[in-house]
């Protein structure tokens, strides 16, 4: 789980980029708290060959990245 809540651009994407480079996970859950972060993370994950599903829990978003 990568928790990007409350972080400014482009930190959410950098955190996920680091995790993917380090561990190349087949699936990864990411928490975000802004629509812009969801859009940026989705665009980045798709560019890395992941499929992305997003669910909302209150004010937070959970992105599930799967290969």
């Amino acid at each position: 789980m990568v928790d990007t809540r409350g972080l400014s651009c482009p930190m959410p994407v950098i955190m996920v980029q680091k995790e993917i480079r380090k561990n190349a996970p087949a699936s990864l859950e990411v928490l975000a708290d802004a629509q812009v972060a969801v859009e940026n993370l989705t665009r980045f994950a798709v560019s890395q060959g992941y499929q992305v599903s997003v669910s909302q829990d209150g004010l937070d978003f959970k992105l599930t990245l799967t290969k």
């Binding site: 651009c9 482009p10 950098i14 980029q17 812009v36 980045f44 560019s47």
Partner: peptide, 19 residues
Amino acid sequence: SRLCMAGGIRDAFMLHDFT
């Protein structure tokens, strides 16, 4: 659109994202 004059150049270098 999230327009950002600095973010455009930053993302192009850092993430190869040209949006």
